[in-house]
Write a protein that binds this DNA or RNA. Structure first.
Lengths: 339, 339
DNA sequence: CTGAAAGCGCTTACAG
DNA sequence: CTGAAAGCGCTTACAG
């Protein structure tokens, strides 16, 4: 890679490196004729300053890192969109990484982003409830932060960092109450990997609210699957194989609910006539499903915007932005059919 | 940002910069005891080499740029996923940019990626059919390529670069033939911005195949909208307002078809009983819609993988990977109701 | 206002 | 095998 350098520009403009640098950085203290020459030379040579050299000389970079579990998951796609919008407003580039829910890979990416001297590192994926992982993550984050790096996390993490905290537990509880309100007493839960804080919080909130009403789903009515469309599909099939269907099914994420919806249809079951179905997140497409999905609405793009904004505006102490999660009732849930 | 430096490591290990560098780069020519000391020091200091300094010294960087129109569009999300997977295999980080279909922003991002000395720049978004834009893009791409940068584009571009070319025109033609085969003669098209090559190619292929059968949709049956869910929703409403519905509607992208499907349902129309509907792309969710959507299948993740692979494996001359597009018939299309 | 020079944090011939 | 030194492409006090 032999790109044009500042030296080339200075030479063809007949000025010193310093002057060329000043012009290109918008300093106003340069004589007009020299400025012209430098601009012309840069233009003629299609010059672009080497961002690495600038980062080194200025000891600051124009990149920010965003780590998520999977960009192609609509939840993260929406969060990334919001975060990238804010980054663009600040003339920052974002390095995006997908861990595919591999804890080790998450840590490796943080390390890489640290090497890149990213201005900030955003952890958009749910944390893993695993002390060893937390320690390893901390071992990367701490030196990064001590060196001036900024960290912001989405959802509950143990990391000492600014955080955007969607009310997963409260949202799930509200949903449970709404479903109880429709008359349901017989529930199943399609859960994701319990090691993920987000999953744990949602399951917990849902169970707690049911318990308040004296309702407890049987253990075999809580099915674990991948936090994906296919995971939801498989979990729903597993549920069907375990015996009589409950009147209402809660999938801890919309992507799982989508898979479940199709599994139910394939089994000849109608939603909500035969079984009510609810999800969580309110990713864009669920309102276009048939029936439109009842879910817990999170302002996804907004979450991403806040996350980036938090990371970019240093504060004396840690900040926690709690974000309410609201139940959105749609046609996929209805009162249970009288037995 | 004052991170630990190689100098710190060398000092605490009691060796020279060169030796420390060698150990950390895996050189085998370093005495075992010194190697140990260096490793220990690096570990103790939580040292991470400065990627900018490395890029400068080695004249090569570990990043590759990916420019798309909108990460939160499932089409790009899937393409990005594939591209990122390949990047991860090569230990490369990807800088992701969304242009939101703003031609100027696209060029600005190419320029920024050039400044980052990205190893490769991938243009995943459809090109704009606009000579001024093409010139401006070329003005960025040419110096980048001359300096050794690699460029790969997805879908038809005029740029002199490696290309992955989904058969948009052929796929749309095949779809048209399949729909004619069902008995349809009365079509509408929900089209995106005609300045996009992808849109132009799909509309053209569809029209050509209809023409071969002596069928021509009336001009007011071709409605233009944004290439989004909302754009499809609006276009479908506009179509409805223009008079009697055709028997079959082709949306040039699945995201538009999703919006159209909901618009039809809101209007009390049943798909496919009252109107058949088909899309293009086969983004993951369309198989879970009710009815599942007939569409033209593109191997989206694969597209992204190929794009990245192409960019990473330099070749003596330009390569064009043509990717077939296959019709996938699902329940959203059916023979027209006898009049 | 302008330029020579030092420095950012690495890598890598080149000596020894 | 190891180290001193030059160099990567910039920026920015410091002189003048």
């Amino acid at each position: 890679m032999t790109h044009t350098t500042l030296g080339d520009v200075a030479r063809t403009a007949g000025v010193s490196l310093a002057t060329a640098s000043r012009v290109l950085n918008g300093s106003t203290t340069v004589r007009a004729d020299l400025r012209e020459k430098v601009m012309a030379a840069a233009e003629a040579l299609a010059y672009r300053p080497n961002a690495h050299a600038q980062a080194l000389a200025r000891a600051s970079s124009q990149v920010v890192g965003l780590i998520c579990h999977d960009v192609s998951d609509p939840y993260f796609a929406a969060v990334a969109r919001g975060a990238m919008r804010v980054a663009a407003d600040h003339d920052l580039m974002v390095m995006l990484a997908s861990t595919f829910r591999d804890p080790d890979r998450e840590i490796a990416y943080v390390s890489t982003l640290r090497a890149q001297r990213a201005r900030a590192i955003l952890l958009a994926g749910s944390a893993f409830q695993d002390p060893a992982w937390e320690r390893a993550l901390d071992a990367e984050l701490t030196p990064y932060q001590e060196a001036g790096g900024r960290v912001a996390v989405l959802s509950r993490h143990r990391a000492r960092a600014d955080a955007v905290l969607p009310d997963n537990r409260g949202g799930a509880a509200s949903l449970a109450r709404a479903l109880l309100g429709l008359g349901h007493r017989d529930f199943a839960v399609l859960a994701g990997p319990p090691a993920l804080t987000t999953v744990a919080d949602r399951v917990r909130g849902f169970r707690e609210a049911l318990a308040e009403a004296g309702v407890r789903p049987a253990p075999d009515r809580v099915v674990t699957g991948d936090l994906t469309r296919d995971g939801g599909h498989a979990a729903a099939r597993e549920l069907l194989s375990r015996g009589p269907l409950p009147t209402c099914v809660f999938a801890v994420a919309d992507v799982m609910a989508i898979g479940a919806l199709t599994a139910f249809r394939e089994a000849g079951l109608r939603v909500p006539e035969d079984v009510s179905l609810a999800g969580f997140d309110d990713i864009p497409v669920v309102a276009d499903l048939t029936p439109p999905l009842t879910t817990v609405t999170l302002p996804l793009e907004d979450l991403g915007e806040r996350l980036m904004t938090l990371a970019l505006a240093p504060a004396p102490r840690r900040r926690h932005h709690r974000v309410p999660a609201e139940v959105t009732l749609r046609a996929s849930t209805a009162p249970p059919r009288p037995a």
